[in-house]
Design a protein around this nucleic acid. Structure first.
Lengths: 135, 135
DNA sequence: CTTTGTTGGTCTCAAAAAGAGACTAACACT
DNA sequence: AGTGTTAGTCTCTTTTTGAGACCAACAAAG
């Protein structure tokens, strides 16, 4: 697959250089929570349909319960997902994407799609780097 | 600002459930490298124009030299940026975005723009969570 | 009626990653 | 001679992550 993108209009720069230090930069404040190793994966799952804790655990086989709990809490805290407890026995917990979550997932899914279609390019670049260059 | 997105067509799912374990999932393979704390920030800077090591360091005041070096190496390895050494004294090194990098930055910048315009929503959700709920 | 399984977590401890800061070489300028 | 600049690397400490044991309460199986 060929790469055809050129430098985009640098008009919409979401964060100017004067606010690039953490604490002042809104973009960093938001991104630092969704840029984690597991966040996008969970968002991707919940964009499809609501899932329960155990289902997510099985869906992402190599996440630890600890990190699943923490990732879900963080996503809930930032308003991307909702948590609902059902009084079954034992109680079950369902996670569901909020409108805010869906609105985030819209642009995010474009990045995921890019990753899917450009995996080969990236792997090629890696091989080239590892073979020729340093290290 | 109002959030108006609804559930997007779940047609384009870049990674089906059978390949959600790391090692098999192309999306994870790509995302795990650009989802770091510093990667998007560096990509954002280099999308604008080439920068030298020290310039990036000053641009992102709270990154350590160690992590800047490592982030740049990773981005270079995956083919998003190029590294060029100029034989000045002392030698200077310029980092520049590649076509592959620009093609990634296109969808990525939409997420950054989302983050910029939805910062208030996220902060509101956080306050609500911290105040009412658990912890 | 005891054993086993299920739920969604938390707790502890070890391993990995990140951050802070000193240190380098070779030259330019003062 | 001393100071500053370049782009890093090296070491040490702190933070984050991962692996796995443990929990209570009930259901179903034996």
């Amino acid at each position: 697959m060929a790469v055809t993108a050129s430098k985009p209009t640098l008009a919409e720069r979401p964060c100017d250089t004067s606010t690039w230090d953490a604490g002042n930069c809104p973009v960093r404040d938001v991104m630092n929570h969704i840029a984690g190793k597991w966040s996008t994966l969970i968002l991707q799952a919940l964009s499809e349909k609501p899932y329960r804790f155990g289902e997510l655990r099985r869906l992402v086989p190599d996440i630890s319960q600890r990190m699943l709990t923490q990732t879900l809490r963080d996503l809930q805290r930032d308003g991307y997902i909702d948590r609902q407890v059902f009084p079954t026995k034992p109680p079950s917990v369902e996670y569901r994407m909020t409108p805010l979550g869906y609105s985030l997932f819209e642009p995010l899914s474009a990045v995921l799609a890019w990753a899917a279609s450009n995996h080969a390019n990236v792997r090629a670049a890696r091989s080239k780097f590892d073979a020729s260059d340093l290290r």
